[in-house]
Design a binder for these strands. Structure first.
Lengths: 141, 141
DNA sequence: CTACAAGTTAGAGTGCGCTCTAAGTCAAGC
DNA sequence: GCTTGACTTAGAGCGCACTCTAACTTGTAG
């Protein structure tokens, strides 16, 4: 089965423009072309696209993703580098998750803070009255 | 205690340039000035800066962070909006964590994949030989 | 055969978040 | 009093990841 650029774009929730941009940047060397020059995406290409999507999620710049794809094309000589890349990414993702969890706690506190304020009709409720409750809440949340 | 822009920048791991940029964008209306126009950061400002840092971590654009800070300056009339903002952010963060956890699983698999390949000296090890082991591994990881 | 929808390219434009420069002012130590 | 280094501003520049345009070609339905 062969897919057009628009179909693939739809499948991955991006635009055809973006896919062409990725191709121009060297991220899609695996995509073949028809005689007239149109891109012919195959199912086996979806694995690559999913990997690009995955690495983008982790905040990796396109240049480094391209580098990884280039390494893949160079065979066993680059195995060590590719291994190191994923080890580094693993650490980075764990850090990102930790940072987000920390942010989530702060945001949860603010949710409670504003919920109570909205109920009271004023932010003043958090001046003296509920100092103890706030401290209490901070412990549990 | 009063802090210079350089001290605050150091404390938050950013540059003084960036702090001035945030000020120019309206993110630091709470920072007072000396008679000669120098910024005089106080300890109470650090809470605001920590909140900006927190929201930035969650990928919120500076314009929306500014909007929140503006709302804070408008008193109780904006309590509902601020509450909604943090509820929305809570959902967004949870989604981001989920996406990162999914990416982490893929990356972990690749770590294993390349570790084995490096040990074997070739990626071919993943062609036929270890198909079963790979399937097995995918279940546990 | 024609019309048109969808593909192609090169290259310009956009928005974001800095990042830096130039020219000038100010505060503290010698 | 003078030097030095840190501060101030306006504004230019940068890198990233798109995003769009113009001009053109191609494939398909009527």
């Amino acid at each position: 089965m062969i897919y057009t650029i628009a179909q693939v774009a739809g499948k991955f929730g991006i635009t055809a423009h973006t896919l062409r941009y990725y191709d121009k940047e060297g991220l899609l060397p695996f995509v073949e072309r028809s005689a007239s020059g149109r891109r012919r995406f195959k199912e086996e290409d979806f694995g690559w696209l999913a990997m690009i999507e995955c690495l983008k999620t982790t905040g990796m710049p396109l240049k480094r993703i391209k580098q990884y794809i280039d390494w893949c094309g160079k065979g066993d000589a680059t195995l060590q580098k590719r291994h190191e890349l994923f080890l580094e990414r693993k650490t980075a993702i764990k850090q990102q998750i930790k940072a987000l969890e920390k942010a989530l706690e702060k945001v949860k506190y603010k949710c409670w803070y504003y919920k109570t304020a909205v109920a009271a009709g004023t932010e003043k409720i958090h001046r003296q009255t509920l100092r103890k409750a706030a401290a209490e809440h901070r412990k549990t949340v």
